[in-house]
Design a protein around this nucleic acid. Structure first.
Length: 494
RNA sequence: GGUUCCGUGGCCGAGUGGUUAGGCAGAGGUCUGCAAAACCUUUUACGGCGGUUCGAAUCCGUUCGGAACCUCCA
């Protein structure tokens, strides 16, 4: 066996571990989704593309994955205690649910545009208020929470006596207490580190629900604990999110789950790294973030041009999810060219058929080489979903395909089984696992065929004026004509 | 200050003890009416210093530089 087993980096242990699901072949995966008070930006997109790959690859390996990705539609507070969605609703004079719907729609459009598969369940915080209230009650009854002025807070000092708080991010309570910052409206807390489970709403607050504690709303961390538990059980396999959620959000989730259920919620924690611009994290507050649409259409002052969604997806997959990825025109241009090369190769490969022949010239070395590259692709994905390395191997395979196409290598040198494996591997990894799908489709294949025949005739009669004209006309339609040794080929332009 | 991480060739970006990552760009070649595409060959490399080792980009120490988190963030 030359193909190994799946390993992934577990943020909880900081080690690369063999992936062993709790109830194989079932796999439960929870990923923190967006807060829908504005458009998702490119950095958010990177995270969701990364988990899309993980979802796709786990399914490819035959696991029965239940992928849950939430929509946060309440509970994210600003420094002054106002809810992000409430604030946007107040400014735009809209119902909070109109804000939520608008940006949820945008989020879904972006996901679809970038070929991100939808999750199996996409729960929202406001749809799970009863469950959240129940968890608060459990925490209160177990003594890990306390009421103060209509709000309920998680008692971290008490919790920390039983379970170390901050183990995911490597923080210690003593250090945290020394460094905590005083925020507005936190006078009710026993300890500044305690976080809200339920927050009493100010009179002008629009999003609020009646409970025995107050008219109020749930704290942000609570929804993820509640919804992951509800749909995946007390313990599930993978919990993911952006690196910036590791602390405090994910440490708080662990505290809520352990505090109410006595179980570690997730076996493996996975964190995706940040997209950077000139070495700095892309974020809304720094003003260096791009919207996906701006990148597609090229309408941003930092952009030289627009890039197609698949070129952008390819760009992101050329790095590992746990590394930062720096964003620049130069890097994007490089990826665009690489992507175009891959897309053209895929088109050629789809039309390539193994010829009928007497297999006399079988080249064992070539067969071994091709099968090794196919193994390499699997092993690269098995190594913590290393898409960058996988793409490297796919290009090695692509070279073979192109060599067969241009007849620099002959298909009669390999047997049918090798041909089939080469074809299946390249197509499956590119389209199913990496989710890179063809963007351009030529309508009017017959017309193209006719023009290429005409072109060939013009060439044969050395009518170069016509030859050049046909080349130019087709170039304007996005097609490059390639004169091959004994036939006329074509490819997509960038 | 605490926690975590990074520094690879012109650009992006894998690799973690010995053997070509890959893409883009550059050079040469095959092919070509000229091109283009493709393929082949090829230049530029592991921040500095010290250590471990037969051997280090990879391990250890140190130093310089950069980033993220500690406030909402994917």
């Amino acid at each position: 066996m030359t193909i190994g087993k799946l390993k992934l980096t577990n943020s909880l242990t900081r080690k690369k571990e063999l992936f062993e699901p709790i109830n194989s072949p079932k796999v439960g995966m929870y990923v923190c989704g967006p807060t829908v008070y504005s458009n998702v930006h490119l950095g958010n997109l990177r995270t969701f593309i990364s988990f899309d790959i993980i979802n796709r690859y786990l399914k490819f390996l035959g696991y029965k994955v239940r992928y849950v990705r939430n929509i946060t539609d309440v509970g994210h507070l600003l420094d002054n205690g106002e809810d992000k969605i409430s604030k946007k609703a107040r400014i735009d004079k809209l119902e909070p649910m109109e804000i939520v719907q608008k940006f949820t729609n945008d989020f879904h459009n972006v996901m679809k545009t970038f070929n991100v598969l939808p999750p199996d369940i996409e729960p929202s915080a406001t749809g799970h208020l009863l469950e959240q209230i129940e968890m608060i009650e459990t925490l209160l009854s177990r003594g890990f929470a306390y009421q103060a002025n209509g709000s309920v807070y998680f008692d971290l000092i008490k919790y920390n006596k039983l379970h170390p708080y901050g183990k995911l991010s490597g923080r210690k309570m003593a250090d945290l207490i020394n460094q905590s910052r005083t925020l507005e409206g936190q006078d009710d807390k026993k300890n500044p580190l305690d976080f809200a489970l339920w927050k009493k709403a100010a009179p002008n607050h629009i999003m609020k629900w009646k409970t025995k504690w107050s008219y109020g709303f749930p704290g942000w961390h609570l929804e993820c604990s509640v919804m992951s538990t509800k749909y995946l059980g007390k313990q599930f396999d993978i919990h993911g999110g952006g690196l910036d959620l590791k602390f405090p959000h994910h440490d708080c989730e662990i505290a809520q789950c352990l505090g109410s259920l006595d179980k570690e919620p997730a076996k493996y924690w996975m964190h995706t790294n940040m997209l950077t611009v000139n070495g700095q994290k892309m974020s809304k507050s720094l003003g260096n973030s791009f919207l996906p649409w701006q990148l597609i259409y090229g309408n941003h002052k930092l952009l030289d041009r627009g890039y197609s969604p698949m070129a952008i997806r390819f760009f992101m997959l050329q790095s590992h999810y746990a590394s930062t990825l720096d964003f620049s025109n130069e890097a994007l241009n490089g990826s665009l060219k690489g992507y175009t090369k891959l897309a053209n190769g895929i088109r050629i490969l789809k039309e390539m058929i193994y010829p009928k022949h007497d297999a006399l010239n079988v080249n064992a070395a070539l067969i071994n080489q091709i099968s090794k590259i196919c193994d390499d692709c699997h092993n690269a994905m098995n190594d913590d979903f290393n898409t960058a390395l996988t793409i490297g191997h796919l290009f090695n395979l692509l070279k073979k395909v192109n060599s067969f196409y241009s007849k620099q290598l002959s298909l009669t040198d390999i047997n049918q089984a090798t041909f089939n494996r080469m074809k299946t591997t390249l197509l499956t990894f590119t389209e199913e696992i990496l989710g890179i799908k063809p963007e351009k489709n030529i309508n009017g294949h017959n017309l193209l065929k006719f023009l290429l025949e005409d072109y060939a005739k013009a060439k044969a009669t050395k009518n170069y004026k016509k030859v050049d004209l046909l080349r130019q006309l087709l170039a304007e339609e996005g097609i490059t004509i390639n004169d091959m040794k004994d036939f006329i080929g074509w490819a997509y332009n960038e």
